[in-house]
Amino acid sequence: MRIGEIVETTSTGFVAESFTLNRPPPLGSLVAVSLPAQDMEIYAVVAYGQTVGLDPGRRAVRRSTEIVFDEAIYHEHPELKHILRTEFGAVLVGYLAEGQVWQHLPPQPPPLHFSVQTVETGELRRFTDHLLYFRLLLSYNGPVSPLQVLAANVREVYRQRGSDRAWLDVAAREIATLLKNDHEALLTVLYAIDPGEASAIAERRGQL
């Protein structure tokens, strides 16, 4: 499903404008850019989202009243849909070429104005069976800390893989290996991806 269009692109990531206002793809989710000419699919992880005015020099102003607020504002001011835009940034984590998944940077940045698409569950499983792309996520510099992007990605993939506890344990160990010299950073990520007792109990019930 197409969800946005690339409006800025580099070798390490891109910025895309979301097709739906205020609803960029979830932080940490895997998105793809298709290049049919090269028979290639580039994968990226959503690293931040923002909604701003079309004119970067002008700040948004207050529009709510006593009775018109939240969602109602957009009905009251239909022009908002044309003067606001929602953007999201994504960091490149690999690509699919010649039938094989690679978890390193693609040779070229994805082309400007190409579509950004969601990734099907089967494809997501195939890509996340390997975790080398965690290294690319950790080296990314953006408005959101790479640790939080990584944690968001793990949470998102865990959910999309159907609460796959085995995968989560492997991912957690991979992160522990990557952050072996920085205990605090490691705990930051682990606290953020801990599924908690509830999930462990649920899982045990599922096994019984």
Binding site: A172, R173, A176, L187, L190, D194, G196, E197
Partner: peptide
């Protein structure tokens, strides 16, 4: 331990998930 700070400040009351992850890695 990979990080000596871990030894001076061992995680307190951590969840089983975190304990399981740390053992054998950090």
């Amino acid at each position: 331990a990979t990080d000596p700070r871990l030894l001076s400040d061992p995680p307190r009351a951590t969840s089983p998930f975190i304990a399981h992850t740390l053992s054998g890695t950090s």
